[in-house]
Design a protein around this nucleic acid. Structure first.
Lengths: 325, 325
DNA sequence: CTGAAAGCGCTTACAG
DNA sequence: CTGAAAGCGCTTACAG
C-alpha cells in the first residue's frame, strides 16, 4: 500500500497543493465548492496527514511525553495514563512514554532537542524537584500532577483526609496512624499535613505518620508494636493497605476488630482481600484527564488555572469498624 | 533557547550541510580531520538531531507503538513496558502508547497512515485475532507477545505448568484446579493445555480449568463448592491469586492447610498477603525486552526467529503446603 | 574527499 | 478565491 499525499490530491482535484492544504485544515479562503471537491478526493484516496511532515513544517511534535522512574510498577499509574489518553488520543496527539534510569532530566533535554514532544506531564512531584526548574529553562510546556511552580492539578488532600479520619472518628477510634510514600513527594507532604489537621480537629488522642520506604511491611510492624497500639491505619495506597492486612494477619491481629485498615486510594485491588478494604475513592482516570486537559490549554496558548481535583468519597467495606477494647 | 541545526554547524565549520550530515551519521567519505572538526562544533553547539526532520527524510518514524485495551489496568503490563523501554529507550526510539476503546484496529490504521510508528508490539494475542491480519495487510512490522502468524516471542507454558503442577504433586495434591484469563487468549489456551498435560503426566485424580471472566471471585467460589473440593488452585495472575486468598478467607477455608494457592505470575503483590503467595516467576521485564529486541531486528531488515522465553522458576512461599485431610 | 541540489510531505506568507 | 514558492531540518544520490 502506498500512502497518498496532498500532492496526489492536488493533481486529482486539479488544484494547487496549497489549496489542498488550506481546504484540509479548514482554513478560510477556499470556495465551498473547491473545498468540497478536495475533501471528496482526499476521502476517496484515503488520505491521512503525515504526522512527521506536519510536525516539521508546523514546528509541533503532535505528541506529549511522560517519563517514569524505572522502578515504577504502580498499578494506579495505568489509570492515570488512561486518563491522559482519553483527552489526547481522540485528538491524535501521541503519548510518548519513557522509563528513565534516575536521570530523568536527560530525557527532557533529549526530547526538547529532538523536538519530540510539545509538552510533558510530570507525575510524583517532589517538594524540591529539579525537573521543575529544568522544564522552565527549556521552556518546555509542562503540567504537574501535584502542586508546583508550573501549571498543575492536584488532589484535594484536605477533604480526603477529613473523610478518612472522620470515618474513623465516628467509629470511635482515638489512636490512628498513617503510612505514606516518600516524604519528599508533594503528595505525601500535603496528605500528612491534612491528616494531622484532621486528627487535631477530631481531637484524636494520637496520630502518627510514617513512611513506607524502604519497607512498608516493616513500617507497619513497627507501628503495630507501639503501646498503646493505634486502632486504625490509613494507608496512602491500595498496595500498602493490602500489605497492612497481610502484616496484621501474620501478627494475629484481627481486622477490623483489633485494627481498622483504610486505603487512601480505591482500586479493584481493594476488593480482593477479606475483609475487603474500605477506601477513599479518587477517580484517577478523571484526574489524569484533568491534567491532560490543562496541558492541552497550555499548548493552545492559554494560561490555565491550577485546579484542585475532587472531592473524594468514602467507600465503606469490611476493613474498618469500631475498635473493640 | 534556540535549537541549532546542521546548517548552523555547517556554517560554523565552513563545510556543506551534506558533509555535516555524513559526518554526524558516521558515514564513510569524510576525512578524519573534517569529521572531527564537525563533531567538535556539533558538540559545542549542543546539537541534537531533530527527530521529525530525520523521520521525514528517512521515512522512519523513530518510534514504535503499543495499543492497549481501555480497561487494561494490569500491573504486569508496566513491567513488560519497562522491558520494551530498556531496548528502545537507549536507542532514542520513542514508545507511543495508546488506549483504544475496543476499535484497536483503527489505531493501527491511523498510525500507519500518519507514519507515526515504524512497528508495533502486540500484547494479549487472541486465538483468532483480527489484528494479525490487518497488520499483515498494512505491512506494518509487528511482533506479538504470544504465538501468532507474525514474528513472536512466547512464554514457556509447558515448563511453567509442569513446574506448578509438579510442585503440587510433590506436596501430595491429587485434585487441582486452575483459573485463567479469557479462553480466547493464546496465553490462556496454551497454559490450559499445558496444565492438563502436566496433570495427566503426574496422574492427578482431577484437574479442571475455569475462566476468571467475568467474575474471578465467583469462579473461585464455584470451584470451591465442588465436592470433593480441589485441594490446590493455580491462578494465572497475581491478582487472581490474591482474590482466591480473599475468597478462601471469606469461606473460612484455611490456606495452605485446606487449600493451596499458587500464582502463575510472581510479582511484588505476591508478598503482601499472609501467607505470602508461592509463585511461578517469569521475568516480565526480560520478556518485554526480548520482544522489543525481536522487533528491532525486524525493523533492521532481519527475519527474526520466533523465541520462547523462559524457563520460569518456582518461588516457594507460604500459600502452598501438603493437603490435610 | 567535498559541495550543490533535490526531495521527504506538509504549512504559510506572498502574489496574482 | 487560487497558485507558485519558500521553508521546516534532515538525508541521499549525483557531480566535481
Amino acid at each position: 500500500m502506498r500512502r497518498p499525499t496532498i500532492h496526489d490530491i492536488a493533481r486529482r482535484a486539479g488544484v494547487a497543493k496549497s489549496t489542498v492544504s488550506f481546504a484540509l485544515n479548514g482554513q478560510p479562503g477556499v470556495s465551498e465548492s473547491t473545498r468540497r471537491r478536495i475533501l471528496g478526493v482526499a476521502d476517496e484516496l484515503g488520505w491521512r496527514p503525515s504526522s512527521v511532515a506536519r510536525s516539521l513544517s508546523s514546528a509541533q511534535a503532535g505528541a506529549v511525553g511522560l517519563v517514569l522512574a524505572c522502578e515504577t510498577a504502580d498499578p494506579a499509574l495505568m489509570r492515570l495514563v488512561a486518563g491522559f489518553e482519553s483527552v489526547f488520543g481522540p485528538r491524535e496527539v501521541g503519548l510518548l512514554l519513557q522509563f528513565a534510569p534516575r536521570t530523568e532530566l536527560a530525557v527532557y533535554h533529549s526530547w526538547w532537542h529532538q523536538r519530540r514532544v510539545d509538552g510533558v506531564l510530570v507525575v510524583d512531584v517532589r517538594v524540591s524537584d529539579p525537573r521543575i526548574a529544568l522544564l522552565g529553562e527549556l521552556g518546555l510546556p509542562a503540567v504537574t500532577l501535584g502542586r508546583s511552580a508550573l501549571p498543575s492539578v492536584s488532589l484535594d488532600a484536605e477533604t480526603a483526609m477529613r473523610t478518612a479520619v472522620g470515618h474513623l472518628a465516628r467509629l470511635g477510634h482515638r489512636r490512628i496512624a498513617r503510612i505514606g510514600r516518600s516524604p519528599e513527594l508533594v503528595h505525601t507532604a500535603e496528605h500528612t499535613a491534612a491528616f494531622l489537621d484532621a486528627a487535631r480537629a477530631m481531637a484524636m488522642e494520637s496520630a502518627v505518620c510514617v513512611t513506607a520506604e524502604p519497607d512498608a511491611a516493616e513500617a507497619v510492624r513497627r507501628l503495630l508494636a507501639a503501646r498503646p497500639r493505634p486502632t486504625a491505619l490509613v494507608c496512602d495506597t491500595d498496595v500498602m493497605a493490602l500489605g497492612a492486612l497481610g502484616v496484621a494477619a501474620q501478627l494475629g491481629i484481627r481486622v477490623p476488630g483489633e485494627l481498622s485498615v483504610l486505603a487512601g486510594e480505591d482500586s479493584p485491588l481493594c476488593l480482593l482481600p477479606h475483609p475487603a478494604l474500605t477506601a477513599v475513592r479518587v477517580d484517577l482516570h478523571s484526574y489524569g484527564a484533568a491534567a491532560a486537559e490543562t496541558l492541552r490549554c497550555l499548548l493552545a496558548g492559554d494560561r490555565p488555572q491550577d485546579r484542585t481535583f475532587g472531592p473524594p468519597c468514602l467507600v465503606e467495606r469490611g476493613s474498618t469498624g469500631p475498635p473493640v477494647s
